[in-house]
Design a binder for these strands. Structure first.
Lengths: 255, 255
DNA sequence: CGAATCCTTGAACACCTTCAACAGGGGTGG
DNA sequence: CCACCCCTGTTGAAGGTGTTCAAGGATTCG
């Protein structure tokens, strides 16, 4: 932060503590709810003290108490391999929900850890279910969000199953750019909240490969990277790197 | 089928066409519903003519009309990469639900194709939502199933992100064995409904690698493979292959 | 200012892929 | 019923992408 400071490094502090005036309301569970429904959700959304970097929202194996909405900051979710290594399964930004994978069995199968100072809303599930009768749209919206998460996971499976290291990096950058844009920031410039280690872990690559490819994309003039700060200089060309029309050399076996 | 015929090659024809007497009721959306709720679901579950091998339940881009429960047979789901290659995202067995990833946006982001003769129940979503008031448990159960699908996807992401080719194959076999066992068949013997191509695609491996590893696991005495027929000879040892306590050689970078 | 952490870069290596050829079934048509 | 062909699966050898190992540089924080 001694150098340039893209907008997303400032915390997106919602104007107030209520859903109704939350700046990222349109992205959250609250999207398309009417004022009455918003008020109902407000009543049960507990806000916790902000998490500091490295703090856990929940651990693997914890009983499900609530699902959580990110208000500001960011969170990584991860599972553990049988031999105890971490697999990063997702990056959550303001407006995203965390913990949906615990609803099935009542136990968190993955952990959520703050990547920076992060504030959240806790949505106690049992009280959420109590709303069902009076506010079916909340329930319905929750199902939508879960379905979108399934879809996102399928995209990530495709990334891990079919794409070259270069494509994975390019797609991550485009994904982040799009999500920051949805939140009102520039498509072209943002700060990575994940470390190189987390990025490599998330993309199924060695950390050295991540570093090398950032350097390469920079040498090609597509992006500028300096530590966590990323600038996309040529969005179109980056897209053509991420999704080449002709299959890359390594792709035939999977065809 | 000229050789041995494990039980799962016989179609699991439900005794009757009603949910109440469906043999796989406990695995499906119907698990833990009371007779009244079962009857409600029965009313709207339309049964379609069985799909033949290669037939699609829906294509990518189709509008969401219903989600589907598998009654017998099996189905693969897949998405397309930007350059038009297929990525197999899942294998669905009797009792599993298909199409949940379409609820979010109303459009199927992935396709579902029968791997063999397959019969299904269609659950029209709009009529399902109409049940919400009278049968909230169905809605709740649907959320559970979706959450479990998220969890399954996370496991598959871990497989693709962290595991060696050998581990991927071993885990696939164990996964299938477990699911067939849940459906009342032997853990030790079953028929693959996926081709080698589909298996490789699903596991992010070249088809030749799949073939070689089947051969290797057979040489080690862990399994016996002949075309689609698989016998697990040493379940414990296969488990230790799938989840070694000490990280494999290729794993350090992801640690 | 020093230590720890994170990131970068280089070189050797390994796993898996690619390319190539062949074997075996299953279906079709003569 | 057999010959033929196509498709699926197998096996071998060479090659490549990404990993591993190693070392050095940069940043941050106490």
């Amino acid at each position: 932060m001694t150098t340039t400071t893209p907008s997303n490094v400032f915390h997106i502090e919602p104007n107030t503590r209520s859903c109704k005036e939350c700046r990222i309301r349109q992205l959250c569970l609250t999207a398309e709810l009417n004022p009455t429904e918003l008020a109902q959700l407000d009543c049960l959304a507990r806000q916790r003290r902000p998490l500091t970097r490295g703090a856990h929202l929940f651990h693997i194996g914890d009983p499900l108490e609530a699902v959580y909405a990110i208000r500001s900051g960011s969170v990584k979710t991860y599972t553990l391999t049988p031999d105890g290594r971490e697999q990063v399964t997702g990056l959550r930004l303001p407006g995203d929900l965390v913990g949906l994978d615990a609803i099935g069995r009542g136990i968190h199968p993955s952990a959520a850890e703050a990547l920076e100072t992060t504030s959240i809303c806790a949505l106690p599930l049992n009280r959420l279910e109590g709303l069902k009768g009076s506010a079916p749209k909340i329930q319905q919206r929750l199902m939508q969000v879960m379905s979108e998460e399934i879809q996102d996971n399928e995209e990530h499976i495709t990334l891990l199953g079919k794409q070259s290291a270069e494509q994975r990096i390019a797609n991550l950058l485009l994904n982040l750019a799009k999500r920051y844009q949805l939140r009102g920031y520039s498509v072209h410039e943002f700060n990575l909240s994940m470390s190189r280690t987390d990025i490599g872990n998330y993309l199924g690559l060695a950390i050295e490969t991540v570093s090398r490819l950032f350097t390469r994309l920079q040498e090609l003039g597509l992006i500028s990277v300096e530590r966590k700060h990323v600038r996309i200089n040529d969005l179109e060309k980056l897209r053509s790197f991420a999704s080449p029309v002709d299959a890359p050399a390594t792709a035939r076996a999977h065809a």
